[in-house]
Simulated assay, not measured.
Amino acid sequence: MSVHIDIAGMRPESVAVVPSPLAELGMALHALSEPGHHPGLQGWVTGVTARLDPHLADRMCEADFLWRTTFSDLFLPYAGIPGPGTLPGATLADELDLLDKLTDEQFVDAALEFTCAVGYGTCGPTALTDAEVRRRSLDLAAARGPQQLRFSERLLADPPRIRAWLRQFLQDCDEAFFAETWSRLRHQLAADARHKTDLLRHRGLAEALAAVSPAVTLDEAAAEITVDKLGEGRTATGEDGLLLVPTSLGWPHLMVLHRHGWQPVLHYPAGSPELAAPPTLEQLALRMTALSHPVRMRMCRYLARSAYTTGELAQVHGMTAPEISRHLAVLKKAGLITTRRRGRYVLHQLDVTMVARLGSEFLEGILR
């Protein structure tokens, strides 16, 4: 499972690395709504929440599905503006002006992205123009609760009103807490953007993408970028190029905008505490599958305490040596056990550190 970006014909100069205050405000709202996703931001979340105006806190709940469950493309509006080369604005006000340039159809589609199940990566009828899509959108919104249904009904009935509401809400968030946060973060993000831009110019796209995240790889022969995520999608740069947007508040989320007709965007964590080479989702699945078998779980109980030979494990578990060997091979392939030789015996032992990391690595993988 992964997201693929076709870059055939893309010019090197059409790749840009630019911080985005609106995208960072979106991540700030997400962190405030889902602090469990961002344990490193607990102090910041507590401080902002403690001084937040109750009325603004209530308004945050009115449309929190735009940033709580995942991250709406409305926070990356420059990607939806027709024509190549549209970049994030230097200020939040600039980017709110770019948000105003989206058509009503674009705005509604992006706002309903996680409510109506219209194909995200394909071109099709929209809820504003098609009665059946509209009905299905409202049915799905109702299934998610009365709050989301009310918002969706107001959005479909009067898009300009919701657009004005969202703009005012974001401006109020900026005044209440984000302007101070952005003044602190923008220098770090600008430095990261300069570093990635230097890599692009002097080392090439492959090294720049590797620096963005080990989960992003470039197949130069196939002219394709692959992002290792628990999701599937496909898009192409075409004439629009590729935009890389760093975030400080967003770790561990690595997001890919691959909406049909929009410029592809990689929204990546800058200066994140992730490991130099975190496991791929395939490796995580391999490890969790290896540990899910009841026999291997019992074996791990012994192997966590001491090193055992194949014969010793066979005797303890009442199984044949070949059967134990097959289970050991699965655990070893998953990187969960170590082996060492002692004379003519081979001793196996559980890599307790690796197993302990599975919890945080699994969380990072599913949040990526």
Results as ranks from 00 to 15, higher is better:
Y78F: 13
R186W: 03
D104K: 06
Q188M: 14
A16M: 13
L336A: 04
H253S: 15
H293M: 12
P146M: 10
G343H: 09
L99N: 08
I7N: 07
T309S: 14
L98A: 01
R301G: 12
M1G: 07
P88A: 09
L29K: 01
E323R: 07
V108P: 02
L363S: 14
D228G: 05
L98D: 08
F362Q: 01
D109R: 15
G89F: 14
T310N: 13
L25K: 10
A63L: 12
E239P: 08
G271N: 05
W251P: 03
Q283I: 09
E113S: 15
V245Y: 05
I81L: 13
K101M: 05
L230Q: 12
H258F: 11
G231C: 05
D192R: 14
A142W: 07
E132W: 02
R136S: 10
T181R: 15
A221H: 10
V316K: 07
H30N: 06
A90W: 03
A179P: 03
Q349P: 13
G238D: 07
T226L: 01
E95A: 02
T353L: 00
S360C: 00
Q171N: 00
V355D: 06
D219R: 06
Y268P: 02
L257K: 00
P159A: 12
T217L: 00
A143D: 14
A277C: 03
P88Y: 15
T197W: 09
W262T: 03
D172R: 14
H187V: 14
T338W: 08
L99Y: 09
R341T: 15
W67H: 11
S2V: 04
L266D: 01
S272Q: 07
A143V: 07
L336C: 13
M297C: 05
A191V: 03
L286Y: 00
G83A: 08
E224A: 11
T226C: 11
Q106A: 11
T91C: 02
P146S: 10
T226I: 05
D104G: 06
P159H: 07
A90C: 13
M288H: 10
A50L: 01
G343R: 01
L336G: 06
D6V: 05
I337V: 15
W251C: 01
E153P: 08
